[in-house]
Structure formats: C-alpha cells, structure tokens
C-alpha cells in the first residue's frame, strides 16, 4: 500500500473542496483498503468521511425513505421501517458480506464497490484496470456476466443496489456545482473506454443520500451463493410489486450479478404485470427474463439459476 495523507472531516461540506482525481473519500474502507493493498488504486489523500455525522441517518417519512450515505449495511438490515416497507433492501443488506463487514460497510461505498473479478483483483493488467484485454472472457469466468454489456464481463458485485433499483431509488450527489439527483438505474453503467468503472460518479463528487420512494406493498431479495453465507452472489433477484386482489401491479424485477450492472428484466415485468402469478407464469417470467442472456464458457449454470430465482421470487412475493 502506498503512503497517503489522511484527512478527517467533520461534515459533508468540508469534503467537496478536498476531492479530486488523486483524493478519495474513505468510508468503511472495506473496499478501499483491499484495492489499495493490491495496488489497484493509490490515492494521495484519503478523506475520512466517517466522522461526518450529517451523512449517517435513516429517515422514513411521507416521501419515502432517506438514507444517509454513511449508513452501514447493518443499520439498514436492522431498521424496522426498512424491514417492513422496503424488505428487499433490508434483505439485500442482510445477505451481504459478514456481520463485521456490515458493521463497517456503508451504503455509499457499497454503491461504488469495484469489480470482484479475480483477474482484476489479481496480478493482471486487464481491460477494466486500463489494459487492453479482458482476461476473463477467454479465461475462467464462472462468476462472470451472462449479459454482455462492455468489453469487460465482470459482474457488478454489490447486493443492495439491485434492491434499490427494484425500489426505483435515487441518489443525491453533491459536487462543486451543487447537488444532482440521479436514479440508481442511471448511476450504475457499464464501463466504457474512457471510464473504466462500474459507476458514473465524478472524482469530485460525493454521494450524500439515497432516496427511496414510498415502497410497494411487497418486495423480496433472493441471493444464490456457493456456500451458506458470506459469499458474493452467483446471481440474485430483487422483485417489488403491489399485490392487489391477488394480482401483481407495478412489478419490477432486477437481476443482480449477471452483468456489469443490475438489470431490469422489462419483458418479464410486462409478462406478469396485472396478472395473477401462477407457478407456471412465474416460470415463464424466468425464461423471458433470461431470453437475451448468453453464457460464457464456465457459467452456463447462471442461466437456469437466474431463471429459477426470478420464478421463485415471484412465487414468494405472491405468497406475501
């Protein structure tokens, strides 16, 4: 790890003037420190925002849910309002990482987690790191994408953002020019030749709040892992819907860990919209959601897996 200057700030306002390409905010540090230890990033200054008390809150009101960027995954998981009205988000937070990591990891940092691709985290100067070649594409790719969205086939690794997308959440981002409000669905984008990250935050910007509009009547997050706990998703699904008269309305289905970003399964949503979701319809929705997916050499299993999860999530949401 390269040496750096560490600056403690007391509130979010102090942060913005300090940010630039060579200065990074430090929140829980659970991704920042591993990246720095591996030499993947080497900021000259770390702006420790953890003492910025104005960024750590959960407020539920008429307008929905306001979550300060420094809120930890543990706080999200345990918050009674989140659990009751935004279940998918609480579940996604609860299923992420481990208890200690959830104590440390903030929602803001979670949105910005970099790819967990083993080439990226290893000794390979791959495309996402600024190199020429994606090693995973022709290498080992069992954990990689089944929807091809960029030269990189890494999957977006964080759990809560898929839930946030199903809840149509927005981010409040502050930069030198002031604040902007952007849907999570727009904020997370596949990397491009010029921007080798899985998100669109500018170096001089800070995420200050996540705003979740008033929740639907039901939502669920399902995550498949290759051991019982503490693993990144093999695939995940967040579903939110209003169940009225036994039918599903405003259905939103988001697939996680299958692409550079969480993906809305629009065709599947359309298929079930306003319907009574039978097991058979749930199964078809799964198939529809995966119609455009293409497996790489080592991840064929993700097609049945993600189909199964979509169907299961729809069945679960109908069951209430």
């Amino acid at each position: 790890m390269q040496p750096f200057i560490h600056i403690d700030v007391a509130n979010s306002e102090e942060v913005i003037p300090l940010l630039d390409a060579r200065s990074r905010p430090l929140a829980g540090g659970t991704d920042m420190l591993p990246l720095m230890k591996e030499g993947i990033v080497a900021p000259e200054r770390l702006i420790n925002i953890k003492r910025a008390g104005d960024l750590r809150y959960i407020r539920a009101d008429e307008d929905g849910l306001h979550i300060g960027a420094l809120t930890t995954l543990d706080e999200l998981d345990r918050h009674p309002d989140v659990r009751r009205d935004y279940t998918t988000l609480a579940q996604a937070a609860a299923e992420a990482a481990s208890p200690q990591l959830r104590n440390m990891a903030t929602l803001g940092g979670n949105l910005l987690q970099q790819a967990r691709c083993w080439y990226y985290r290893g000794d390979f100067h791959c495309w996402l790191k600024g190199g020429e070649l994606c090693h995973a594409r022709d290498g080992r790719n069992e954990y990689h994408a089944i929807f091809d969205q960029s030269p990189c086939v890494a999957v977006y690794p964080s759990d809560p953002p898929a839930a946030l997308m199903a809840l149509e959440a927005n981010l409040r981002i502050v930069g030198p020019q002031g604040a902007r409000l952007v849907p999570v669905a727009e904020f997370l984008q596949p990397p491009s030749a010029e921007r080798r990250t899985l998100h669109t935050l500018a170096p001089n910007e800070l995420i200050v709040e996540v705003h979740v509009p008033k929740g639907p009547s039901g939502s669920v997050y399902l995550k498949a892992m290759d051991r019982a706990t503490w693993a990144y998703a093999l695939a995940s699904v967040a579903v939110a819907a209003n169940i009225r008269d036994g039918r599903a309305h405003n259905v939103r289905i988001v697939l996680g860990a299958v692409s550079n970003r969480p993906i809305r399964a629009l065709a599947a949503e359309e298929l079930v919209e306003g319907q009574l979701i039978t097991p058979e319809l749930a199964r078809r929705a799964g198939e529809t959601a995966l119609a455009a997916a293409r497996a790489l050499e080592h991840n064929h299993y993700k097609l049945p897996l993600t189909r199964n999860l979509v169907a299961q999530a729809l069945r679960d949401i109908m069951a209430g």
């Binding site: 560490h6 540090g29 208890p99 990591l101 104590n103």
Partner: peptide
C-alpha cells in the same frame, strides 16, 4: 476482529489513524 467503540470490526481493514 477487535471491538471499536463496542462494535466488532476487522482490524486488517481499519486504519489506526481512524
């Protein structure tokens, strides 16, 4: 794992200055 203000954290991902 150690406790920082009573909260369990991984001290390998925590800076001493923090």
């Amino acid at each position: 794992t150690v406790l920082v203000d009573g909260v369990a954290v991984y001290s390998c991902l925590t800076l001493a200055v923090e």
